[in-house]
């Protein structure tokens, strides 16, 4: 009987899933597309190098229906993996739809994203943190547009840094009522590889570029779940495995977003 149960409980080891292309791409209004292309890797218990994920010889094309460009790859030390694809042959324009296609070896992925109209930033309120003279907290305010619901991602980078505008932790917000003042906190982006200790607050003296990016719902859903995953996997894993991240990449992982940027520069005082 025990043997029968043991047999009943056995399931064969499934084949490890095949590596898939991973896209992190954005085209902002008035700006140029930047795409990071990598591969997913099958982890081993002993760990391994993330460089294995790098895709240097992929082909990435962007099309807005009138113009199609092939992006050029090159080293990019501001991110991981340290390589990105870019082009100055096409610029983001509100109302247009952008098709991204990428291929590497046998793998092909595709995604479509429509550029919304940007929503102006009304203000960014900076407040002191009690008992700390060097750190500040900020809240970005805007007025919900007439064509609600509208979805937003807040991005940030330090001026004159090599970093791209990175999504802020918990920097997603949905506006549902037209004309209503809406707000979202501005926390520093969380990049695990860049620092061991994460500090969410803004440092006095820093000059920051902050973008309120209006996006389509699928892009918003991705970055919202992304914050959730980044925080949930901070060590509190006894809370269980979160669901897999959503995405809009057919045949692969990740996100391709046409983002309607409204950019502000903030000097933290």
């Amino acid at each position: 009987m025990l043997l029968l149960l043991v047999a009943a409980g056995c399931v064969g080891n499934p084949e490890p899933p095949e590596s898939r292309l991973v896209v992190e791409g954005v085209i902002p209004t008035g700006g140029y597309p930047v795409v990071t292309l990598s591969r997913s890797i099958t982890p081993s218990g002993g760990g391994g190098a993330l460089e294995d994920a790098l895709v240097r010889w992929g082909k990435v094309t962007i099309s807005d229906g009138d113009t199609t460009v092939i992006l050029t790859g090159g080293p990019d030390s501001s991110q991981l993996p340290p390589y990105s694809y870019y082009s100055y042959g096409i610029r983001g324009e509100a109302g247009r739809t952008y098709v991204m296609e990428a291929e590497y070896g046998e793998n092909r992925v595709r995604s479509i994203s429509r550029m919304m109209s940007p929503t102006p930033v009304d203000s960014i309120n900076v407040s002191r943190i009690e008992g700390n003279d060097t750190l500040r907290r900020a809240v970005l305010w805007f007025t919900a547009p007439d064509d609600c619901p509208a979805y937003y991602v807040v991005r940030l980078r330090k001026s004159r840094s090599k970093m791209h505008l990175m999504p802020c932790l918990f920097g997603t917000v949905a506006a549902t009522q037209p004309g209503v003042a809406a707000s979202v906190p501005v926390f520093m982006p969380k990049m695990k590889f860049a620092e061991d200790h994460y500090d969410s607050d803004l440092h006095v003296g820093d000059t920051l570029e902050i973008a309120l990016s209006r996006v389509e719902r699928d892009v918003y859903d991705f970055w919202r779940a992304y914050s959730n995953v980044v925080v949930s996997s901070s060590g509190a894993d006894f809370l269980g495995a979160p669901p897999n991240l959503p995405g809009n990449i057919t045949g692969g992982y990740g996100i391709w977003g046409a983002e309607a940027h409204s950019l502000r520069t903030l000097i933290v005082r």
Partner: peptide, 20 residues
């Protein structure tokens, strides 16, 4: 437990793809 079958990177963070 639900194992990690694949890893990839987005936004400077490591993202897990969970299996069955």
């Amino acid at each position: 437990y639900t194992p990690v079958e694949q890893l990839y990177m987005i936004g400077g963070n490591i993202i897990s793809v969970y299996g069955g």
